[in-house]
Measured scan of single mutants.
Amino acid sequence: MQNSHSGVNQLGGVFVNGRPLPDSTRQKIVELAHSGARPCDISRILQVSNGCVSKILGRYYETGSIRPRAIGGSKPRVATPEVVSKIAQYKRECPSIFAWEIRDRLLSEGVCTNDNIPSVSSINRVLRNLASEKQQMGADGMYDKLRMLNGQTGSWGTRPGWYPGTSVPGQPTQDGCQQQEGGGENTNSISSNGEDSDEAQMRLQLKRKLQRNRTSFTQEQIEALEKEFERTHYPDVFARERLAAKIDLPEARIQVWFSNRRAKWRREEKLRNQRRQASNTPSHIPISSSFSTSVYQPIPQPTTPVSSFTSGSMLGRTDTALTNTYSALPPMPSFTMANNLPMQPPVPSQTSSYSCMLPTSPSVNGRSYDTYTPPHMQTHMNSQPMGTSGTTSTGLISPGVSVPVQVPGSEPDMSQYWPRLQ
């Protein structure tokens, strides 16, 4: 039975679970980093996980050691009161100082060594604690504590007292930064006198190289990059290397530039699409467009005044059976039934097929058609009795279509119309 579990990581490298990497692998990681390889490249070359490479390099940059820390136990506290007071002093002298600059000053002034120097995250935590204590304490208590930490007896009751030896409130920041720059020169002199001055200088240079600022491109470089971006948004590694040799930039910087440029292009394309949609959409909808001609068919113009009344309900007709019959029939052209047409008796099958359309009241044959006459024609229609054979009435077949029909004066039988409509 094995005491430890061995495995293979996602890159194909072998590791022992819970145990640190061998010293030979750690040394190779540092050597590759000094030669300029990126952590992701080191991870692929040595088949070590990216997190492990970053952790080893980060500890090497901070402490200069590649040895693993002790497994188990607690780390001794490195942010001692003396170190905290120095950090507060540096922050007062130059409020814009960075944590890694404070760390360098602690090393250069001999406050800490490589073994007990606090990390950048520890210094940031100390600065946050100082800021929170400043908010919790009152103004007087804060000034007393700062005077105690600074070891001075001057008056701290006013704002300019934060910067000793100065009279203009805006000047101390520059003086403090100048003092810090002077301390940086002392850093070089002190570290050069040490035993491991060369190694420390190499480590600091490598650290500065990794902690780079934003790349500033010249106009020629920007023009070359934009020209390549117009050709393709995704250049391959050969195109990037050719462009890197042409404009004297690292291939990694060119790759990052193209990634950022593609993101910018997507944002601009989104804005262009929004403007295009806004320009195509009308600002207001016309009133006429809300009524579609496919839904509402136009009603033909009436030929006679009587045809303006298109349904039985508008003429005072309360018989719903006839109203439904007229509205359900398709529109037909106007025609006239003459008196000489043969009077065919209704076929029983045809009569039964339209039995649902006729009223059940037996008085329908005896009703006159003056009910369908509009009010303004009552006088004219009353002067001509319906009993004469020459009287013409208008029957409504569908809305908007008038059918003048000659009705025999002897017997106005409704059943004569249905064979004609089939």
Rank of each mutant, 00 (worst) to 15 (best):
G7R: 15
C52I: 00
T25F: 04
H5R: 15
G73F: 01
R44S: 06
V126I: 14
S65W: 03
A70P: 14
V14K: 14
M137T: 11
Q47P: 00
G72Q: 05
K134V: 11
L106Q: 04
R69P: 01
A33F: 05
I29M: 12
C40P: 04
K75F: 03
N150L: 12
D115S: 14
E101T: 05
G72I: 03
P81W: 07
E31V: 10
R125C: 04
S74A: 06
A70H: 10
Q136F: 13
K91A: 05
V30N: 02
R67W: 06
G138P: 10
S35E: 14
R69D: 03
I45T: 12
L107H: 15
K55A: 07
W100K: 11
P39T: 08
E93W: 05
E31N: 11
D144S: 13
R125G: 06
P22E: 02
R26Q: 02
Q47W: 00
L46G: 02
N116T: 08
Y60P: 00
G18Q: 01
G13K: 05
K86M: 10
G138S: 11
I123G: 00
M137D: 11
R92M: 12
M148V: 14
E101V: 11
S49M: 00
K145P: 11
P76K: 08
P95L: 09
V111G: 09
V53S: 02
A139H: 12
C40I: 11
W100P: 07
K145M: 12
G72N: 04
Q27P: 00
I87V: 06
S74G: 07
L11Y: 13
V111N: 10
D104C: 10
P95N: 12
S54M: 03
I45S: 09
F98L: 06
D104P: 00
W100V: 07
K145R: 10
I42Y: 02
P95T: 09
Y143T: 13
K86E: 08
S74P: 03
L146A: 12
E101G: 08
S96K: 13
C94G: 12
L127T: 07
S96Y: 12
P68Q: 03
C52Q: 01
G64T: 02
P76I: 06
M148G: 12
T113V: 14
Q27C: 14
N9S: 03
R44G: 06
K134S: 10
D144K: 13
L106A: 00
G72H: 05
A70I: 07
S85K: 13
V48Q: 00
C94K: 09
N50S: 15
A99G: 14
T113Y: 09
G64D: 02
N3M: 11
S96Q: 08
R59Y: 00
L149M: 13
R67A: 15
R128Q: 00
R103F: 02
G141K: 09
S121A: 05
Q2E: 11
Y143R: 14
S121Q: 07
A139G: 13
G12N: 05
R77G: 03
I66Q: 02
L149G: 13
K86L: 07
F15W: 06
Q135K: 13
R147S: 12
Y90N: 05
Y61R: 15
Y143N: 11
V126M: 07
R67Y: 08
P95V: 14
S119G: 03
I87E: 00
D144R: 12
L130A: 14
Q27A: 13
G7K: 15
R44I: 05
